[in-house]
């Protein structure tokens, strides 16, 4: 189970352990955390929601795509759902490869693809309200089902 959606806090070491291989000279770990300030706006907490069965499939697809580009890579990804507080870990990606450059590149590839194809959404809760965030640039949100002008840009 290298690709998981977790309802409980992620054990980072257990994700890393899944990609340990004798052929590896490098393991890169990406840890995505909940940021308090986005362009000056203070987040109180986040709710992450997933279409879990499809999200796991799409994480597996990302693993397969990495396998095509970096055949010697091993990949493990766990994304958390539910209520997360500031500094909590939302996602952990571990990639091992024989050489470090590939481990960095493949890990970066994984997080960018997560933001494109994995059906997971976050709802920002602020002091003055809440909103589902509509895309990963945090420039679009659809509070009423219709796109509207957002007050910050990434």
């Amino acid at each position: 189970m290298n690709f998981e959606i977790a309802k409980e806090p992620i054990d980072i070491q257990s994700v890393i352990d899944k990609v340990v291989q004798r052929e590896a000279g490098a393991i890169t770990t990406f840890i995505g955390t909940v940021r308090e300030l986005t362009h000056g706006k203070k987040t109180l907490f986040l709710i992450y929601e997933a279409y879990e069965s499809m999200a796991v499939k799409k994480l597996e697809q990302i693993g397969a795509e990495i396998g095509e580009r970096w055949p010697d890579a091993q990949v493990a990804i766990t994304h958390r759902v539910g209520k997360l507080d500031i500094t909590d870990v939302a996602v952990v990606i571990a990639v091992s490869t024989p050489h470090r450059n590939d481990a960095y590149e493949a890990n970066r590839y994984a997080i960018e693809r997560i933001k494109e194809i994995v059906p997971i959404w976050k709802k920002e809760h602020w002091e003055d309200g809440e909103k589902w965030i509509g895309n990963q640039l945090e420039t679009v949100s659809y509070p009423t089902g219709k796109p509207e002008k957002e007050d910050f840009h990434d």
Partner: peptide
């Protein structure tokens, strides 16, 4: 839209027993 957990086109056919999910722009990570 996703039909049976795969992204679909507007002209993808949906049949009795299928599951269709509407997928707003994602914001994981």
């Amino acid at each position: 839209a996703a039909v049976n957990e795969e992204f679909a086109d507007p002209d993808t056919m949906v049949s009795n027993g299928d599951t269709v999910a509407f997928i707003p722009p994602v914001s994981g990570g």
